[in-house]
C-alpha cells in the first residue's frame, strides 16, 4: 500500500466489460460458424478469414491514421462485424467482394459515425445489403461448394434457397421440404442460415450469460409467426406457413444476432418489442409481396433508422411516477 485511493462510490465494479460482452457474442456465433465451415468447406473458411481480417485491419487503420484515436481492436466488436458479415454471404463469394463488404461495413457504416456505440445501422448488414445491391450475381449464387462433410439433403437442393424456391414456385415448391431437416440443416443459403439449431444454441448462450434480453428476438419471431399465420390460414395455396418462415432464410440469424445489437437497437423493453414487431412485419411484407425472396436485412436496417425515435418515445418505468 503506497497511497490510499479515494474515489466516489460505488467502490466495486462488475466483471462484465464491453470486451467480455462482445467476446460472448463471438462465442455464441461459434456453433453457426462450425456448421457452415463443415458443410461449405475451404471456401467458407476463406470468406470468414477475409471478412474478419479485413474488418480488423480497416478498424485499425482508420483509428490510427484517420481518427487518430486510441486503438479499439481490443473490444472485439470488429470481430463480430467480420463474422456476421461472413455468415451473411454465400460461401462462394470471391474474396475481393468480401473485402469491399468489410470496407462498407467498418469504413462507412461504423467508423464514419464515430466508431463503436455511435453507428446508426448495423455495420455487417449495411455491408451485406451494399453487396447484395452491387453484386447481385455473386450474392445470389447458392452453388454448393465442396464441404468437409457431405450431406444428401444439402447436396440435393443446391442451387436455390428455400425462400428462393417459395418465391418462384409458391408454397407448392416447399411442400417437399422437411422441417425437421431445416431445423438442423437448412438447404442452401448463406453460411449463417444453414442450421437453425446452431443459431438457437448461440441464443441460449447469450441468454444464459445475460448478454441480451430475449424480447427483441421473441417479438420478431412472434410477429413473423402471427403475420404469416394469418395469411397462411386465409390462403394456404398462395402463402407459405409460419414454421417455414421462421426456420428459413436469415430470420433466426437476424433476430438473434443482428437485431439485438446493442448499439442499433432500442434501449427500453417496450421500445425493443415495437422494434421487433416492426422487423417482423417488414420482413414478411418483403417476403410475401416484395421483389426479393428475403427481407430480414432490409427490415432490420429500416427499423434501425427509427431506433432514436423509439428511444425517445419509450422510457423505463420510473419509481413513484
Amino acid at each position: 500500500m503506497d497511497k490510499l485511493i479515494v474515489s466516489p462510490s460505488p467502490h466495486l465494479h462488475t466483471k462484465t466489460s464491453t470486451k467480455s460482452l462482445m467476446r460472448d457474442v463471438v462465442i455464441a456465433l461459434i456453433p453457426a460458424v462450425v456448421v457452415s465451415v463443415l458443410f461449405y468447406g475451404w471456401s467458407e473458411l476463406l470468406v470468414l478469414g477475409v471478412s474478419v481480417a479485413s474488418c480488423l485491419l480497416l478498424e485499425y487503420l482508420i483509428t490510427k491514421y484517420l481518427l487518430k484515436t486510441s486503438c479499439t481492436l481490443g473490444d472485439w466488436s470488429a470481430v463480430i462485424t467480420g463474422v456476421l458479415l461472413a455468415l451473411n454471404l454465400p460461401a462462394t463469394t470471391p474474396w475481393w467482394v468480401v473485402f469491399i463488404g468489410a470496407v462498407v461495413a467498418i469504413g462507412i457504416a461504423k467508423m464514419t459515425f464515430g466508431g463503436l456505440g455511435q453507428n446508426l445501422f448495423n455495420p455487417a448488414l449495411v455491408g451485406r445489403v451494399f453487396l447484395l445491391i452491387s453484386f447481385p450475381t455473386y450474392m445470389t449464387d447458392w452453388a454448393k461448394p465442396q464441404g468437409f462433410i457431405t450431406n444428401s439433403i444439402v447436396d440435393a437442393y443446391s442451387g436455390a434457397t428455400p425462400l428462393g424456391i417459395a418465391k418462384g414456385l409458391g408454397p407448392q415448391g416447399v411442400e417437399a421440404m422437411d422441417y425437421l431437416n431445416m431445423l438442423f440443416l437448412n438447404i442452401g443459403g448463406s453460411a449463417g442460415e444453414l442450421s437453425a439449431i446452431a443459431l438457437l444454441l448461440g441464443f441460449a448462450y447469450l441468454l444464459i450469460r445475460k448478454v441480451i434480453k430475449p424480447y427483441i428476438t421473441l417479438s420478431i419471431i412472434g410477429t413473423v409467426a402471427v403475420f404469416s399465420g394469418i395469411f397462411y390460414l386465409a390462403n394456404p395455396a398462395e402463402y407459405t406457413d409460419p414454421l417455414f418462415n421462421i426456420l428459413s432464410g436469415g430470420l433466426l440469424l437476424g433476430a438473434i444476432f443482428m437485431a439485438t445489437d446493442y448499439v442499433t437497437s432500442p434501449m427500453s423493453k417496450w421500445g425493443g418489442v415495437v422494434f421487433g414487431v416492426g422487423i417482423g412485419v417488414i420482413t414478411m411484407l418483403i417476403r410475401y409481396f416484395g421483389a426479393y425472396p428475403e427481407g430480414v436485412s432490409f427490415a432490420i436496417l429500416i427499423m434501425n433508422s427509427v431506433v432514436p425515435l423509439l428511444n425517445k418515445w419509450f422510457h423505463t418505468k420510473k419509481y413513484g411516477r
Binding site: 464491453t18 466508431g115 456505440g117 446493442y262 434501449m267 423505463t316
Partner: peptide, 26 residues
C-alpha cells in the same frame, strides 16, 4: 484489483445501467 476502475470507453448503449437502476432512471 477489486476497486480500481477500468478505463472509460464508448457507451455501447447496452442499457445495463437502466436495467439496474432501482429508481427506473436512464
Amino acid at each position: 484489483e477489486q476497486t480500481v476502475r477500468g478505463v472509460e470507453s464508448a457507451c455501447i448503449r447496452c442499457g445495463k445501467c437502466a436495467e439496474a437502476c432501482p429508481m427506473g432512471l436512464e
